[in-house]
Design a protein around this nucleic acid. Structure first.
Lengths: 309, 309
DNA sequence: GAGAGGCATAGGGACAGCCTATGTCCACAT
DNA sequence: ATGTGGACATAGGCTGTCCCTATGCCTCTC
């Protein structure tokens, strides 16, 4: 299901936020490196698409209407995630002149790193970061071979030769579509879950291994054959939402869907699905410079969350 | 500061997600109502902008590379917020044929309603919703005059004639730029905060009133003249991040910035800055139909959060 | 070895977006 | 009163992007 075209024009919303911030269309235009008439027209077409007047234009500038404030608030959320996306992309690019090399598991890279990188940029703006994503083994290799200055893994065991610090927590969760029978019960036994065919990641994936490992610890060694195997988290989510069947995914992956009730979380009895996310580095070589900054940022985020929990 | 143009093309990322989900460029193109060559070219220009190969093209379709999975994950976040934005816009439009009319304070409208509306759509897809946003008095008027079927307010006192239920919690927080002296101390007294000029909303705003009320309860009746008064939350955030001065804002507004450490939260001693967000409706007229569904959704979200807290 | 499915390339046309120049409106100062 | 400056709107013309149809190439399958 494609996104409605109404919200595809991020530049327009970005301009709207600048108007809110700077108080006039002309100044916003200058901030975006465009002429005042262009900005003016752009905002008018934005209003036309939205269908509501967003700006009150006066001879002394322009202010947001109530509806404009709402739209600006929603748009700010979109743009904040877009900034995350940009930070992530920047760290993926192969302009490998730079100094901070990070290796991370997919979960960390997807859900935590972008915000950290933005924070890092405000601490040391000139540090370019290169991100290499892979499974735990890959991360350990990179760090041990000193191809990465800092690594982030989600395994419970820290590979030999590496020192570590816990920077966040993750959890596997079982989710179903709201229409699924399990959505009402909100709890199933581990045995039942294991015996039920599900939508699943491919065998080698960290999520799948963690799930099978957790079941193994609980004494369950046989799982049903998956209903469907896919390599992309989004694809699995789409299948689960579409009602194909239950899925097991990282809490971070599905938090938004659970909050919005497009997916329902089902507790699984008697299985420990929790796992710590750790920063790792070669034993004895305490991170220095930007790597140390990034480690501090990651750790502080954790502390802060604990404050509020 | 305008958004980097690299991430402005939401349609391209949306297409990428469809490829991940459907397994081929051609099928994704069909899902988006465009021709296969167009989709193909679009993805190629996307890859060029990102600077990394995102897709592995084979004769049996196309799959995401590791980098592609990362980018898709980040993009999914952006698109999820964009869907919220779209839901909000839909509810603002004046196609007032519809049946569910909601009046809400700005905070609720900005941070909670979009997700609820998306959830509502999955329960009763044909219900169009009209949103009217304003302060608590406005919401009470709308609901009492039966111009709204359900209202959401953030006052501690429920206006006479209305029944209510708590659906969420909010909190005012004092934030400063990381470079500000208070960022290290992480705590100031209420008297000190009141005596310090800050970046502030205009006098009539709910946030400002709540702040002054909370100080009043603590016995502080005089506040310093604001450093700068602006009517938009984003403008205030931008000023605070820029280091103009401290600001007091809703927790929801600044949560992302605090997590990313672009703003630092400073505790304020001896003041109760907490406030409940309530759903309200005319006493004796228990909500029915879509209004009841929305109330259930809002309440469930709260329950679920409590589960995890 | 022929067919089918999937992606890439080529060429042409429509439309959106931008810029410069100019017009209009209103507040404020003289 | 009148002039001036700041701010937004309008007009006209150009450029570039995006999309579509048609076609080509490759590889697996039967």
């Amino acid at each position: 299901m494609p996104l409605p075209p109404r919200v595809t024009d991020l530049a327009g919303f970005d301009l709207l936020l600048s108007v809110a911030e700077l108080g006039s269309i002309g100044r916003a235009a200058k901030a975006h490196g465009m002429s005042q008439p262009s900005a003016s027209e752009r905002l008018r077409t934005l209003e036309a698409r939205v269908g509501v007047t967003l700006l009150e234009r006066t001879h002394r500038g322009a202010r947001l209407t109530t509806a404009g404030q709402l739209v600006a608030g929603w748009a700010a959320q979109v743009l904040a995630r877009a900034a995350d996306l940009d930070a992530g992309i920047t760290s993926l690019r192969a302009d490998r002149q730079s100094h901070l090399r990070v290796a991370a598991s997919l979960t960390v890279a997807e859900y935590l790193l972008p915000a950290w990188l933005i924070a890092l940029r405000s601490v040391s703006p000139d540090t370019a970061t290169v991100l290499s994503a892979g499974n735990s083994v890959h991360v350990a290799e990179q760090v041990l071979a000193e191809k990465a200055d800092l690594g982030f893994v989600e395994s419970t065991d820290v590979p030999a030769g590496l020192a570590s610090r816990v920077v966040a927590h993750d959890e596997l969760v079982l989710v179903v579509a709201p229409a699924h029978p399990w959505a009402r019960r909100r709890k199933v036994t581990a045995a039942k879950a294991a015996a039920t065919p599900m939508v699943s990641r491919e065998p080698g994936s960290g999520t799948r291994q963690a799930w099978e490992h957790a079941l193994g610890v609980a004494g369950i060694t046989e799982s049903a054959v998956p209903l469907l195997e896919m390599s992309s988290t989004t694809a699995i989510k789409a299948a689960a939402i579409g009602g194909i069947g239950p899925a097991v995914l990282s809490l971070h992956t599905v938090a938004a869907d659970v909050a919005a009730r497009t997916l329902v979380r089902v507790e699984v009895g008697d299985v420990d699905l929790h796992r710590a996310l750790r920063a790792v580095w070669p034993s004895g070589r305490t991170p220095r410079g930007p790597a140390s900054d990034l480690l501090t940022i990651a750790t502080r985020t954790l502390t802060h969350r604990a404050d509020r929990g």
